[in-house]
Write a protein that binds this DNA or RNA. Structure first.
Lengths: 358, 358
DNA sequence: CATGTGCATGGATACGTTTTCAAGCATCTC
DNA sequence: GAGATGCTTGAAAACGTATCCATGCACATG
């Protein structure tokens, strides 16, 4: 019962036509109605499925796309991945997944693997910079960045409240921006959340509550967010209040705990991602800091459990699923249309983790 | 600058040898030391990377493996996926990802896609039953189930406290079990957590706190867990206390809320997964039920945010990452060794969401 | 010296598909 | 009726690799 799958040749023979005809019929080419019907019937009868291997070899490219995220344990990237998968499924394309762990070498290795596999499209939450991605692009890959830009890109992608899309259908075209914003060394389209507006809104909100010593807790890839934070709080920035962790939960906790201990005078914290938000809540609890009485907290990313905390966390929501979906759309459309970057709106969701300064 | 990638032919020419020799050198076949060195040097110089397309076509199979999970937004499946990716990376194999949404049709469709892609190995958290997986297996795929068995499998996979591995390195071989447990219609290896022991421990714990009316909140794929629950509470089971939701968060919330409202006399709840745990916390809060004063809660899955809740959630931890890693190991080793199923230990982590009955 | 053994080597083939090309045929146009 | 035009069709050539097989060579054995 171990019969190998039927090939196009089998179908051709059984239908009494040439393989070329079968190929044409199946890929929508022209054929006489009767031939078409016969081929279709035979194919169905033999349960024939064209082999992607053969096709890919012939056209020198695998369909499908790569997807690189730093960590699937981070709910936000789970949302992003779901978005990518949704779009890919509707296009019938496979997605090969890679988890970079925010590590340059792993990322480079994964790029190599895609190249080897003939996958020439990738949507990536980049960890490395030009040194990782320039080779990939030179090798002919279509790259779309999601959620972040490479670490060595300038962080000055501007956001203008009026030009940011309000719905999923509108979008802001980075291409229309002043030249300064196009100095990115890599000319790669990106799908980003409007970090600048999100951070600015959060900082203003905290300011409005009377907070003056506001800290920022960042992680890998939060360059644009920390830049926005600096801009929002205005000079001079108290550099002790801007701390960074690596991607791990341990490091995040250490950074949060260290921050609280070294600067007990801070009254509010903005975290650049949900893992850092989690760490901040944990560290605050451990140090007997009450939220929001002793310290106010705004977390980047709206995740389901933000509402479960007590108090529920005030967050800057970014549309993770949409980011993924749009990125997949871009990477699929590349070639036909010159893809353009997209900036999606963020939203400050006020729950209970912020209070007036005491 | 748009030169296409070097092929084996280019390498052969540049090295002054035949393509067969190059192929042998690169795949570890025999060759004279000097030839080998020359070929290697030329290959490195040309930045040659063997095309997986050509190789796959030749050997009529794509390397790599498929990975099907119900929902990447569920942290547990994120952990599982990370485990699979870790193993796959160390083997240098690509992973193509599919999100089934606990939907049979999507799952079947994804299987079809893998088949088409020539991916003949898949590790799946199955949604469908034999009707989905029998065809895949007959088509020659190597399947390994993770976290669950197909819905129409008998739920009697036994667990014996003594035979369950205590560490990651030990494992229980289902093959050594009495025939009754091998009536599974599909002879497919699986990597599971010891749901029965986990649920039993939780129920006993709640019993010890004085709880008598304990409810179970289940979702898709929780068949083995609910069976274990029934067994643990013993006959007669109050059927109103066993409720199910579909995979969505809305459905989970509705089920939890409905449960609390229809049976205000219940004093404890065990949820079959973290999404349901989240829903239970939310619903309880909405109904002004205090945890653990009014209702005790044990959630399946230890996720980072379980500790963030107040009170922190008492959970049944299962090693998501290990499950994924082991499953990937099994699917990679299949063929060389007849793979056997694995049962990994669970652990009741007592935090603050359970209290004595009032 | 003749024969056998072992190894390194390269030519040729096959994997399953798409696409090009020319041929066959019917219909239309002048 | 001859030529042009359009459509359908199948043979054949790639795509890049792994592997079978035959060849040639060096060396050991008789």
């Amino acid at each position: 019962m171990e019969s190998r799958r039927a090939t196009i040749k089998d179908v051709a023979e059984a239908a009494g036509v040439g393989v070329a005809t079968v190929s044409r019929v199946l890929s929508g080419g022209s054929a006489s109605p009767e031939t078409r019907e016969r081929v279709l019937a035979v194919a169905a009868h033999l349960d024939y499925r064209p082999s992607a291997l053969g096709r890919n070899l012939r056209q020198r490219r695998t369909g499908g796309m790569g997807l690189f995220v730093p960590d699937l344990t981070d709910t936000f990237y789970g949302q992003l991945a779901e978005g990518v998968l949704a779009c890919a499924r509707s296009a019938g394309e496979p997605v090969v997944l890679g988890s970079t762990g925010d590590d340059l070498e792993q990322e480079a290795e994964l790029v190599g693997m895609l190249l080897e596999q003939g996958v020439d499209r990738v949507i990536a939450v980049p960890s490395g910079g030009a040194e990782t991605w320039a080779p990939a692009i030179k090798a002919g890959m279509t790259v779309v960045f999601a959620d972040r830009l490479p670490s060595d890109a300038p962080f000055d992608v501007p956001s203008d409240r009026d030009s940011v899309s309000r719905g999923v259908s509108d979008l802001m075209l980075l291409d229309g921006l002043p030249p300064a914003s196009r100095t990115r060394p890599l000319d790669v389209p990106a799908v980003l959340a409007d970090d600048r507006a999100g951070i600015r809104t959060a900082v203003r909100y905290l300011r409005g509550l009377g907070h003056r010593r506001i800290a920022f807790l960042g992680g890998p890839g939060h360059g644009r967010r920390v830049a926005a934070f600096r801009e929002a709080v205005g000079a001079p920035v108290d550099e002790d209040l801007v701390v960074f962790a690596t991607g791990s939960r341990d490091s995040a906790y250490a950074a949060a705990s260290g921050l609280f201990q070294s600067r007990p005078d801070l009254t509010a914290v903005v975290t650049g991602g949900n893992v850092l938000g989690e760490a901040a809540v944990l560290a605050a609890r451990e140090l007997d800091l009450r939220v929001p009485r002793d310290v106010s907290l705004v977390m980047y990313d709206d995740v389901p459990w933000a509402e479960l905390c007590s108090p529920p966390l005030t967050v800057i929501a970014q549309p993770g699923r949409d980011i993924g979906y749009r990125a997949a759309e871009l990477v699929l459309r590349a070639g036909s249309r010159r893809p353009r970057s997209v900036l999606l709106p963020t939203e400050l969701i006020v729950r209970g983790s912020c209070g007036p300064r005491h």
